Simulated assay, not measured.
Amino acid sequence: MTIALKNVTKVYHMGDTTVHALAGVNLEIIAGELTAIMGPSGSGKSTLMNILGCLDRPTSGSYSIDGLEVGGLNDDELAVMRNQKIGFVFQNFNLLPRMSALQNVSLPMVYAGVSKIERIERAEQALGMVGLEERKHHRPNELSGGQRQRVAIARALVNNPAIIMADEPTGNLDSKSGNEIMDIFGKLNSQGRTIILVTHEPEIAAYARRILHVRDGQLVRDEKQEGAEACSGKVS
């Protein structure tokens, strides 16, 4: 699924202040790419991620996924797009504390109307993909930070999305756990999924084949990396 942005802007009005979070971004991401978005605080990288993930709409410009103009979709259609085609992974995991790993991973399928039997089967498969099948009945407070992020990745995978969006996915993890998480993203990318991640850590961006540098709401550099670590697709 090719992602294309043309002259995309995002403007926020806060009282008498106008903030231009994005100022005419032009970008194309080809299916199967592993792309990192980097930039200082306030650069617009999280706003760009929210628009790419259909969590927000641009103020102006065009955003399309596989030729479909996203700006023309209503709220219900956007929700379907997010649920079926995009998986999300966040820095703070966003797991429900009273639910087991299996139940947390099953949630997106509840919204998609999948039967309970199929939900359990697919959630177990997704947990197996991230090496947590034996922890499926554990609650988040019984898991390490790295394990919780693996649960979050499994949850992002259950509807078999073509695109995975990850916002600072290693930000709350130690170096070893962070590298393990990036190895999982590398494997998913080697299977053909498009991975887009926001990070401020150069060592994490080094896993990507492409790094987009954002500053003051603009794409200032588009850097290609031939020998990116993600190409190995290994999982620790």
Rank of each mutant, 00 (worst) to 15 (best):
M182D: 06
T2F: 03
A112S: 13
T18S: 10
M182F: 12
V198R: 00
T194S: 09
P40Y: 10
D75A: 04
P140H: 03
E226T: 11
D183S: 13
M49D: 02
E118Q: 15
A23P: 02
D174Q: 09
G128H: 13
A101K: 09
I163V: 13
S115Y: 09
A123Y: 00
F90Q: 02
S46A: 00
A156Y: 10
N159V: 09
L212I: 11
M49Q: 01
G15L: 14
M14E: 15
A123K: 00
T2E: 11
G87T: 01
H213R: 10
G53W: 05
L173K: 05
A79D: 08
G233C: 10
L132I: 11
F90Y: 13
S232R: 09
F88V: 09
T170L: 15
R193L: 15
G217R: 01
V198D: 03
L73W: 03
R215T: 01
A126T: 14
H137Q: 15
E201R: 13
A4V: 12
I164F: 08
E180C: 02
D216W: 02
G186D: 06
S62T: 09
N7G: 08
H20F: 11
L96A: 11
S64A: 02
T17F: 08
G39T: 09
V198M: 05
P140K: 04
R193N: 14
L96M: 15
